[in-house]
């Protein structure tokens, strides 16, 4: 297998990009995505902290199971989930193997298992929640928690410009390739070819940085004329913007049930 061969394809091939775009911009409604983003974030906080409180694997396993169920009904990206599991398991396996060679025993493995569970639970909780809040609602939730307006704006602005910038980067890469000269010999594992592509990938930032700088000036002026800095320090505007966020009965029920389940797990 040639590991570098796929690299170029990965940049160009539509399927990866489509997958990316679908994760970012596809709209599927799930139970969680209908809930208030602030409630979801509070839920996340609870489940991100909870695992650190326990060392009992049965309890950890129960919490893990519950979070898994919630993740299953969310629209989490399967690929992301897969990579996450692979990453955590791989990391722990490595520790265990090396520990074994350094004179460890099965105790190391058992100990690592609980840590793995903790990390997995926390990661799952974050994926379940944040893949169900679209960036727009996330930014509004942050705003309502008192985050600065620049931060909140930057999230939705990122959401706006990503596809455009990715497209431009690809065009610039092509510009290099359409005038460049790929190495005729690919070398061992195609290293020459990989080096050629990576060099272009780095150099392509030069035009990208300058072109972006040129455009951002217009953006800032436009923000000014659209009253952004006027609104930034104005609480009435903030209230108006966030007025659509309302905590409903379903939100409360979801949170309460989750907390009850957590308490039940702790007590049993």
């Amino acid at each position: 297998m040639n590991p570098f061969k796929g690299m170029l394809d990965k940049i160009n091939v539509e399927s990866v990009e489509l997958e990316l775009m679908r994760t970012a911009y596809g709209s599927t409604t799930t139970l969680l995505s209908k809930l208030d983003p602030r409630i979801l974030m509070v839920w996340y906080l609870i489940f991100a902290f909870a695992p650190w409180f326990f060392f009992d694997s049965a309890k950890l396993l129960s919490i893990f199971a519950f979070v898994t169920v919630i993740t299953a009904i969310s629209k989490a990206n399967k690929l992301v989930l897969f990579l996450l599991c692979l990453g955590i398991i791989g990391q722990m396996a490595c520790y265990a193997i090396v520990a074994y060679f350094l004179g460890g025993n099965m105790a190391a493995l058992a100990a690592l298992l609980t840590l793995t569970l903790k990390l997995a639970t926390i990661s799952l909780a974050s994926i379940a929640v944040f893949s169900n809040i679209d960036p727009e609602r996330f930014s509004d939730a942050l705003l309502s928690f008192g985050a600065p307006a620049q931060l909140a704006f930057s999230i939705s602005y990122g959401y706006r410009v990503i596809p455009v910038m990715v497209e431009e980067y690809k065009d610039i890469m092509l510009s290099f390739r359409l005038r460049g000269h790929a190495p005729s010999k690919k070398g061992f594992l195609s290293w020459r070819y990989a080096y050629y592509l990576l060099k272009i990938a780095v150099l392509a930032f030069y035009p990208l940085i300058l072109n972006t700088a040129k455009r951002i000036r217009t953006t800032i002026e436009a923000l000014e004329t659209k009253g952004f800095s006027y609104a930034m320090n104005n609480n009435d505007v903030k209230r108006l913007k966030l007025s659509y966020l309302k905590i409903k009965a379903a939100d409360i029920i979801f949170l309460l049930v989750s907390i009850l389940i957590l308490i039940a797990i702790i007590l049993i």
Partner: peptide, 21 residues
């Protein structure tokens, strides 16, 4: 923000070889 975001996104799309940690 925009540039380091896009830089990270592109790095993310490039394949990685992971051996545990």
């Amino acid at each position: 923000l925009a540039l380091s975001g896009i830089e990270n996104l592109i790095a993310e799309v490039l394949p990685e070889f992971q051996l545990g940690p």
